[in-house]
């Protein structure tokens, strides 16, 4: 299971950015997991729950949004890819381009502000 090493990298990213922004506690971390990202949402959650206690993100919550796999046909436009068959369902064109669903992305996180920190 390689989710562990990827989630470790995710945690490092959040911690680094949270420190840079004052180091206050992080409450929520949001990620997008594509259907063809190569990581399993359930295993990402499991790795997060195992790795965060004892880290700077202890007590934070992970929110996962699963992104469906979509491809674009030059003639017919964007379609949802069924069963990983990338052929365009309208015209049979096999040279389609994936537009979403390959990402494992850190979208955002919520961090407590310091007393007196200006609000945006």
């Amino acid at each position: 299971m390689h989710e562990t090493s990827m989630v470790r990298r995710l945690i490092e990213m959040v911690v680094q950015e949270a420190e840079r922004l004052g180091g206050e506690e992080v409450s929520v971390v949001r990620v997008e997991v594509g259907a063809l990202s190569g990581v399993e949402p359930m295993l990402v959650q499991l790795a997060y729950d195992q790795l965060t206690p004892g880290s700077r993100l202890a007590g934070s919550r992970l929110e996962i949004e699963v992104v469906p796999l979509r491809a674009r046909c030059a003639q017919c436009g964007v379609f949802e890819v069924p069963q990983f068959h990338f052929t365009c369902p309208r015209c049979g064109n096999s040279r389609t381009v994936v537009v979403s669903g390959e990402e494992f992305r850190l979208v955002s996180f919520d961090q407590f502000t310091k007393p007196g920190e200006p609000q945006e």
């Binding site: 990298r9 494992f104 992305r105 979208v107 996180f109 919520d110 961090q111 407590f112 920190e117 945006e120």
Partner: peptide, 15 residues
């Protein structure tokens, strides 16, 4: 206590 949302939109595997 107040919470701010930090938007990153960063690929975890980019580095």
């Amino acid at each position: 206590a107040r919470v701010k949302t930090v938007v990153l939109n960063r690929d975890v595997n980019a580095p």
